[in-house]
Design a protein around this nucleic acid. Structure first.
Length: 410
RNA sequence: GGAGAGGUCGCAUAGUGGCCUAGUGCGGCGGUCUUGAAAACCGCUGUCUCGCAAGGGACCGUGAGUUCGAAUCUCACCCUCUCCGCCA
């Protein structure tokens, strides 16, 4: 959420951002509602002041008269307030200068790292390999779980825990606090994290007010909702690991085969809360980016870093880098990581604050980035490391977690 | 799931319709004293919101309601604790 004062004072900037994202928000209506709201607040406050006086004087007649008028205006105010809040939640974050304006074609590759492997044979995709090695079972997965269901078996199951553990350990060693968060979250957490209203249909609803989160970023952000930090307690650096759930309703016909787009997966996620200084946040953005790239480097996976365009990035982000990892089965790059700097967009919704050195209370800045998500990351791990007979070599850093260095056809 | 108790300003506690502009203690900040510190004493010390300001208003778990007036009464909900039951 943006500050209404910021919207008023930087209307052009906000408008540009809304247009660049092709977002659907009526800013004019918001501003007129805001005026109405301010007037009503003034009126209601005046009436309350009068009511308080009348009550003090035990003036029943005066009191009754004011009471009626007050109830009237309060009703109006709460209706306007509700519409106002509804619209405020729909205003996307302001994009940073670095964001390319336009659709997916404007996504900009800024860096490539590692060479895609060359094969002397036609590489198999992970579905074939999964079957051949007997480590993925899609047929029974669909039988049991429905569309996009899967079982990971034997070495496949071990491999998934290995990557997750590897990434989790790696970040814990770097000073990130490891967290296993709840994944059934109340609506305030999803709304606060900026998942709602935009991603509502991609979210499973499991209770009156409870939802399955699509990323541990949601509970990790909500963790400190309504808290005010001392400066000395910042930054907060967390690494969460959790299952993630996504309906993928918006991607109905897309990536229908394989492990690429599934309804449930596991993810190790980095989250940072820091002071509200753009330079400092950008420093953490870099740091989170390096961490993810380092993990891919250690796994020996080639990748490219992409700056997401204004229409492709999420509504809560001010700037978003994705990492696309080389997947030999498709002979191309596929998204595996997403790095986001959200400034105070989420923390304002969640009321996560800190007391600055000047005594002022400010909203923290927040960032999040994927460390590793599986089973999607198994795609390049299997496809890029295959041998002619379908065997798959395990990257060295994972071997202490898997306990084997190779998966062989049965 | 059943039965009780409870949610008040960072923490602890007082407060059962108007003297609550929420008291007190602890903690924190500043000062006096001291070579320095402790102790003692004095003062200050919540958040949000409207306003250029002066100054208003809101907030006692959340939301409705009763009343001229609600932390206090009514209803619903959420959460915590204790005991019992069930259970990985």
């Amino acid at each position: 959420m943006l500050d209404i004062n910021f919207i008023r004072e930087n209307l052009d900037k906000v408008k540009k951002s809304v247009e660049a994202r092709k977002a659907n928000v009526d800013l004019e209506k918001l501003l007129s509602l805001d005026n109405e709201r301010k007037n009503l607040i003034q009126q209601v406050d005046d009436l309350r002041a009068k009511r308080n006086e009348a009550a003090k004087a035990r003036d029943k007649n005066q009191g009754t008269r004011i009471k009626d008028e007050l109830q009237n205006q309060e009703k109006k105010l709460s209706a306007v307030q509700k519409d106002w809040e509804h619209l405020m939640l729909q205003v996307p974050n302001v994009i940073m200068d670095e964001v390319p304006i336009g659709d997916v074609s404007k996504n900009k590759v800024i860096r490539k790292n590692g060479e895609p492997p060359k094969f002397s044979f036609k590489p198999k995709d992970h579905m074939e390999l999964g079957k051949l090695l007997d480590i993925i079972d899609f047929e029974r997965g669909v039988k049991v779980a429905g569309f996009r269901g899967y079982f990971l078996k034997q070495a496949g199951a071990r491999l998934q825990w290995a990557v997750l553990n590897f990434a989790f350990d790696h970040l814990t060693q770097k000073g990130f606090q490891g967290i296993v968060p709840p994944v059934i979250n109340r609506s305030f957490a999803l709304e606060g994290g900026g998942q709602f209203p935009w991603g509502q249909e991609d979210t499973y609803k499991v209770g009156e007010d409870e939802y399955l989160v699509g990323t541990s970023e949601i509970p990790l952000m909500a963790l400190h909702a309504d808290e005010t930090f001392d400066m000395k307690d910042l930054p907060k650096k967390y690494v969460g690991v959790s299952p993630c759930f996504r309906t993928e309703i918006g991607s109905y016909g897309k990536d229908t085969k394989g492990l690429y787009r599934v309804h449930e997966f596991y993810k190790v996620e980095q989250v940072v809360l820091c002071e509200a200084q753009e330079q400092e946040s950008l420093g953490f953005f870099e740091e989170l980016q390096e961490n993810s790239e380092e993990i891919l480097d250690m796994l020996g996976l080639p990748y490219q870093v992409v700056v997401m365009s204004s229409e492709e990035m999420g509504k809560k982000q001010a700037l978003q880098y994705d990492i696309e990892t080389w997947m030999s089965g498709r002979a191309g790059y596929g998204e595996t990581h997403s790095n986001s700097i959200c400034l105070d967009f989420q923390t304002r919704r969640l009321k996560i604050k800190y007391r600055d050195s000047d005594g002022q209370i400010k909203f923290c800045h927040a960032l999040n980035n994927t460390a590793i998500a599986s089973p999607r990351i198994l795609i390049p791990l299997l496809e890029n490391n295959q041998l002619a007979d379908g065997s798959v070599k395990i990257p060295e850093v994972l071997q202490k977690y898997t306990g084997f260095s190779e998966i062989k056809p049965k």
